[in-house]
Design a protein around this nucleic acid. Structure first.
Lengths: 170, 170
DNA sequence: TAGACGTAGA
DNA sequence: TCTACGTCTA
């Protein structure tokens, strides 16, 4: 259950600035940056029934890729590889990723050109935190084979006109 | 990893008042009330190697019991009943609870008479929150049979001189 | 590395 | 009811 049925929204969140840092995923939920507690892709239902991605979290568990300061390659969700360890035993059947849920939401966002909030986990010697990177749009949807299964890759580009991100020792 | 290696401590936490409410377990961790993220019993190591309970969370998943405004019966942790559903299949062997970890910490706290922070989850029609109930001491350690296994029950009494808890519609 | 009174959403 | 890029401690 929830205290407040917080509405989801596309775009920036009032009071949250690019570069803001958070210790826990729960804090992203509280401020409304990303309302999924563990899932990497959050999305909302538009009035016409189409789902649109609102935010993604790059925690470093999937093989994503920050190609430059502006381009992020984000892996889709779902699918099971024989080489992917799950509890309590190893998978018996590999399955490809499917164009549904978060993957579908990201593809729809590309079609509509709507912005997506990007949060990335930064690791330090002392620990880690989640940093709000700002708004991105999906430019390309790719498919590739990885560990024997088909997975999606989404190429996102950071929207221009946003504050620079600087990562000093703070 | 962590940002700060926050020290655990027995007793009240500066800045946290009886009756304070929190939405997520993560917030209990942040303020230092209860540093275990999902486990119900938190404890620390004293210099001499003895473990002492620092705090417990009563989330309502175990069969606990608020007998009066001052007495809380709290179930120990561990043990597996044949009737307790676990993923991905049902247990094959029942196991009793063991006097270790959190259970041992609670027993030690009784011996030492040290206070324990108590947090209880309150459920509403709209959702739930965690409420800081204040400091309690362990008065009795009981054992009983439940669903075919031996479990511990800890009787805690709220220390006197603390603010009254009132639960109106706030 | 695994277990533990986690959460939100489909 | 289940899955999902959780998070701490032992």
């Amino acid at each position: 259950g929830k205290w407040v049925n917080k509405m989801k929204q596309v775009g920036s969140i009032a009071g949250v600035k690019v570069g803001d840092r958070f210790r826990h995923r729960a804090q992203l939920t509280i401020v409304g940056l990303h309302q999924q507690f563990t899932c990497g892709i959050d999305y909302m239902w538009r009035n016409d029934g189409k789902i649109l991605a609102t935010s993604i979290v790059d925690s470093g568990r999937y093989v994503n890729n920050l190609q430059s300061s502006d381009i992020l390659i984000y892996s889709g969700q779902g699918g099971k590889s024989l080489f992917h360890k799950t509890k309590p035993t190893y998978q018996t059947k590999p399955t490809d990723q499917i164009m549904q849920g978060g993957n579908l939401a990201l593809r729809n966002s590309k079609e509509e050109g709507t912005p997506i909030r990007v949060i990335r986990r930064l690791k330090h010697s002392k620990g880690s935190c989640y940093v709000y990177y700002g708004l991105y749009t999906v430019e390309r949807v790719l498919q590739e084979r990885q560990l024997g299964i088909m997975i999606y890759k989404f190429m996102l580009r950071r929207k221009s006109g946003q504050p620079e991100l600087s990562f000093d020792s703070s």
